[in-house]
């Protein structure tokens, strides 16, 4: 009986120490969405049980190892206890009930994170290896996701190539993005600040770098940003030429693989590319003239630069871009000397 009392007290002490000690370490990032509060509520319930079970198993384990250790010279066996059916049933039934309760709570909290606001702001997200593109209802495109605070937003997400996933740790929610389908990500930001969306489904070599800024601002700042983007897009489209090209390469994520400063990423850099001699994987050498650049955008597999992989760049730009947009991009690349 004495053993049970000591172990019981120790279990409670260790449980409380583990729970409050670890919670004090701030295990989770800040809560930046309404959904994160629900997730953290569920996490906390899980964590209480985890800490309790940890104490419940480890304390009697360590206690037994110390108190019931074999003393020197003792060659006798332990007590012949084969089992106890009542005890076995108890520790089958109590966990079973706990598990059912937790499954119910899990379903409840899942439902809470999925709660729909009919007035939610809708933004289209396009993921590709290895960049993000956000299309706003006002008709412009951005590589940064700006969101107004305290308003639910639905991201309608699709992928142009492989499976990606949208995850902002401070929002807690994660959703995979599939090719040929639209999946939804519903979130209500509640904290103004700068966050990062990270692709969290392995999507190839540059997976680590597939991130984009997520900027939560006040409604007024958001409106001002939208207005400035609309104006800039209209001005660039009207002007055409390199300025529009520069906007387009950001919009379509070209800079995820091609740099403008000479660094080698998955694709060749554009710095000094125009009119240079390019060595191809089949041994030929060609001049990177205007026709070459257009061809490389429209049908990327036609000529593969030596040392770079085939089948990485999407083959969809011939249809996604108009002829004048392609010309603008080429004219922008021509300026990078």
């Amino acid at each position: 009986m004495r053993h049970f009392v000591i172990v019981g007290v120790l279990v409670i002490i260790v449980f409380l120490a583990t729970y409050f000690g670890l919670t004090a370490l701030k295990l989770m990032p800040v809560e930046a969405s309404a959904q994160s509060i629900v997730v953290d509520w569920m996490w906390n319930l899980d964590f209480v049980v985890m800490c309790f079970l940890f104490a419940l198993i480890v304390v009697p384990l360590v206690y037994s190892l110390i108190v019931f250790r074999r003393r020197k010279g003792d060659t006798s066996d332990g007590e012949h206890i084969e089992g106890n059916t009542k005890l076995e049933i108890t520790w089958t039934v109590i966990p079973l009930i706990t598990v059912l309760v937790f499954a119910y709570l899990g379903a409840y909290s899942l439902g809470e994170t999925m709660a729909v606001d009919p007035n939610a702001l809708e933004i289209s997200v396009t993921a590709r290896q290895w960049s993000w593109q956000f299309d706003y209802p006002e008709g412009f495109t951005s590589n940064e996701l700006h969101l107004p605070v305290n308003r639910q937003v639905v991201l309608n997400m699709t992928s142009l190539d492989v499976i990606h996933a949208f995850w902002v740790p401070q929002f807690r929610i994660r959703q995979d993005i599939l090719p040929g389908r639209v999946t939804n990500y519903r979130i209500t930001p509640i904290l103004i600040g700068n966050y990062t969306v990270m692709c969290s489904q392995l999507c190839g070599t540059s997976h680590s770098y597939m991130t984009a800024p997520v900027i939560v601002t006040s409604q007024a700042d958001y409106d001002a940003w939208v207005q400035s983007q609309v104006t800039a897009a209209q001005a660039a489209a009207a002007a055409g030429g390199p300025a529009n090209g520069k906007l387009l390469v950001q919009k379509y994520g070209c800079l995820g693989c091609h740099t403008t400063d000479g660094t080698k990423l998955v694709g060749p850099t554009w710095l000094g590319l125009y009119q240079s001699q390019v060595k191809l994987s089949d041994g030929r050498t060609v001049t990177a003239d205007q026709a070459y650049l257009v061809e490389s955008i429209v049908s990327p597999s036609a000529k593969i630069v030596n040392g770079f992989p085939d089948n990485v760049m999407p083959k969809t730009f011939g249809t996604a871009l108009t002829q004048s947009q392609i010309n603008d991009i080429v004219s922008y690349i021509e300026t990078l000397k």
Partner: peptide
């Protein structure tokens, strides 16, 4: 268990 209770697994 936190990986099983769906809401927490989303994180």
């Amino acid at each position: 268990p936190p990986n099983a209770t769906v809401a927490t697994d989303l994180h």
